[in-house]
Structure formats: C-alpha cells, structure tokens
Nucleic acid binder design. Structure first.
Lengths: 254, 254
DNA sequence: CAGTGGTCTAGACCACCAG
DNA sequence: TGGTGGTCTAGACCACTGA
C-alpha cells in the first residue's frame, strides 16, 4: 500500500471548447489520457483535488468527475478517498508489442491483409444452430478467411451469420473492411461480444493454411456477438498461431 | 439493428433502504442484476424511462442513471437514445461453465485446492528484474504452486514478489487463500493487473506436474500487478492445461 | 411530433485518510 | 482536524429516434 509521491504536482494544460459537439467530460478525459500516454503527466503525479480542477477548467464537479472516472476505469488514474488522484505508470502498455484484445475487437478484422477463402450458404453446424437458437438443419452464411500479418499467415477465421441478415456482404467488403464493419454497412450492429479463449493442437487444415507442423499449438478464440436487441448476429471461431500472437488484457481490481 | 420487443414491459419489484450504508445506486444495480440473472427480468424487456423509474424508486435521476450505467457496462442492459433501455439476453454466461477471467482475477487463486510446491528467496530472472525495474542479480521471493480442480492438476503457477514486501507470507496462507488475498493481509494491495494470454507446447516440468504428454498445448498467462501507487507487486507466469481450461471474456462494443 | 437517453449545473452532506 | 473523494439532489437543455 505504498504512498504516492507527493513531491510531484500537476500543472494543467488543457483547453476545452464549449462550442464543440464533443461532450466536455470526453474532451477532458481525452486530453488527460494523451498527456499521460505521452509522458507529459508523469507516473505518480498527484492531480489537484476535484473542486480545484473543476474550477480551473470552468466545469462543474460532476462533469470533471465523469472525465476522471473514465480514466480510472481504464487504469490510467487511481483515486483514493482522503488521499487524492494519482497517475498510474504505463510501462506495460508501452512494452508489450502484441495487439491488445481491445484493439483487436474494436478494429475487428480491420486488418488490411485479410484473404477471403470462401463465402457460401450452408447448413449450420449443431453448435452454431444452438447458439443462434435455430432448428437443426437451418442454413446460415459461412465465411472463411485467412488473416495475414506482414504477409505471412497469422490466423484462420471461420464465421457464421444468420441468413437474411447478411445477404449483401461481398467478398470485397470483407477483404478490405473486416467482418463487423461490413456488417454495420448492411445495418447489423454488433453490440456485445462474448469470447472464450483457449488452446489446442492444430487441425490438419489449419496446419496447412498457417504453415505449422502437425503438433503445433494454436490459440483458439470463440466469439458470439449480439446486437442491441439481444439477437445473435455472429458466431466466430478463430485459430491464431501461438508463436506469433497473444492477447493483452488490463484489469482494474475492485 | 433489430428492434427490441416492445410488447414486454417491466414491473418493478425493488426495495431500497436509505438507512443502509450501501450506496443507493449500488442497491438498485444489484437488485436489477439479480432479477436479470435469475430470469425474472426477461431478455428484451423494456425498462420504463429514467424519469419514471427514478420517481418510482424515489431517487434522483442521476442516481438511477448511475445504477443503470453500471449494468450497461457489464452488458446486462443496452440503452439507446430515443428508444429506451432493454434487457440483454444472458444465454452465454449461463451456458459456459469455465471460470471467467473476471472471476479468476477477483478470486485470484482463492481456489480451495492449491498445492504449494516451493517458497524461497532467489535471484530474479532477467525478465522479472526488468519488470520490477530492479538491477540484475537482485533477490526476490519465488512462489511455485500447483492448482487442482476436482483433485486433478489444472495449472502450474510461478510467481515472483519483491523482497521486503512479502516477508511474512506463509505456505499455509497460500494454500488456503490465494496469492493476492494473502498479499492483502500483509498490506500489499494489487490494484491493476496487466495480463498476456498465449499458448505454447508444454515444458517437460509442466508435462510431469500436469500429467500431459510431451507435445500437449498449454494456455499461458503472464501477469504483472501494480499497487495503487504504481509500484509492481507481482510477476506471475501460469500454465493451464488447454484441455481443461479456457477464459470467458465479455466485451461491450463502443 | 412526442418521448427517450445524453449532458451539464450548483449546490449539499458524508466517509475516509493523513498528520 | 482539515482535506479528499463518494454520494445525492432537483432542476435544465439538447440530440436522437420513431411514428
């Protein structure tokens, strides 16, 4: 429970634009974030108290609090009652080079190097029909892709989408924009994704596509996505080369 | 972008206790969560608008909003401007039986069946010294454990803790309480955890401890934890049997 | 258009922590 | 004991959605 370094004090350097459509709390949070990530706000720096900060920025205390709360949730700041708000060191995010799960989801397949292997309508595998709560034998859209990084294969991606939802998704869309983005352009909005991360030995098809030997391990991600109304819109099974890929996850306790 | 089912309307059944030290917004959020998880609030049910809900519960709108925001963040509710608030289906959480990453972190090793293999002071491996920003050759506490589930081995866990922090952590503590909980009892408070999840083939030591064949895959989690002040307090490397363990991660987009 | 959530304000009181 | 964040209130105006 070591104490923060009280010798460092923050000097604010923020500008907020009240004529902008961007919410004030978001403007404030983003500028703090940038200053922390760029190192201009050093780790262990104490921020002034909320009331002073709000006064300096000429916003109300709840607005300022909302900005800080966002950064606390993301682990950039830590607050404790009776003590104050302190900047948390960012070493890890800088050091780890692999794509984070977060970025991976946000940019969901937005990678510029994706090769579409196949798009076709087929009978849903039992697991998929169950996830979609469709009767056995129902047809779905099946999408197979190969994801490349630096020109060499990184992952095999197999996705299923309920028929009717994805009628007009084209191969060109998928190779350029990623599945979720392509789905948005046809009016499907993934909102919640539930993923399972595991590992297993490659199948022979994966070994061939990924250029791996027979007993190599792959990282397996199964994802089920729902839209705002709670209807399933995608079932995905992705296998990543374990030697070239790992997830980074940051987690704030309590 | 399918529309929520407007035929279902919620009838509130909440009680709030203003004399309780538990914050109102938390009382409200917890009761909604329980009703959703127990299925008493069915998926696709529309909640009334915020102002009505606040009136019915006799709290202010910001307080009610804070309760709902928590549930939205956790993916139990979805809100859209001009539309309303709707209950999101919980199928996946019910179906998947594996411990979630979240629970795993919260209860960090609180598993009742943990076997402590070794606790000793030793020179920090280079990777660990770098993470702790200590000079090469510095000694740290090294903890080796075997985690069992239903009596059979699930994971090998190797942790390093800076010397001085963990002087009085005992073997009995660890086998009963889990590392992070044990650390809390001696005044160390992990606050932020950054994890990397990957996969590889087992080492021979792991194969022996976990009862796996030589080429079996393991799920590898590397975790670096910091306290409130940003000082590193733990470096962990855990290898899980891939055939018996996977993580579940829920993710709200945007 | 009417209804919804999204944002913002200016106060107030309380619980907790450090010295 | 003084200062901090944590909670709560009662308003207000706006942006977006759907009919």
């Amino acid at each position: 429970m070591a104490a923060p370094d009280r010798t460092k004090e923050a000097t604010l350097n923020l500008v907020i634009d009240r004529s902008s459509p961007v919410p004030l709390y978001f403007q404030i949070a983003e500028q703090f974030r940038r200053q922390i990530e760029e190192g201009r706000l050093e780790p262990r720096t104490m921020l002034g108290n909320e009331i002073q900060l709000a006064e300096q920025l000429a916003v109300s205390r709840p607005t300022l609090r909302k900005a800080l709360e966002e950064l606390v949730e993301q682990g950039l700041l830590a607050r404790r009652r009776g003590v104050g708000t302190v900047v948390v060191p960012q070493r890890l995010t800088r050091r780890v080079a692999v794509p984070s799960l977060y970025d991976d989801l946000k940019s969901a397949g937005r990678s510029p190097s994706t090769k579409v292997l196949r798009i076709r309508q087929e009978v849903a595998p039992a697991e998929v029909a169950a996830a979609f709560e469709l009767p056995d034998g129902t047809e779905v859209i099946s999408v197979s892709r190969l994801r490349l990084a630096d020109g060499s294969p990184l992952a095999v991606m197999q996705n299923y989408i309920p028929t009717g939802l994805a009628g007009s998704i084209s191969e060109r869309d998928l190779s350029q924009r990623g599945l979720y983005e392509a789905m948005r352009t046809v009016g499907i909005e993934p909102h919640l994704v539930s993923q399972t991360v595991g590992a297993r030995t490659v199948t022979s098809r994966e070994a061939r596509l990924l250029g791996l030997r027979r007993s190599a391990p792959v990282l397996v991600v199964t994802a089920l996505a729902f839209d705002y109304a709670g209807h399933p819109v995608d079932f995905g099974m992705h296998s990543y080369r374990a030697d070239r890929y790992s997830f980074e996850i940051r987690h704030v306790l309590q």
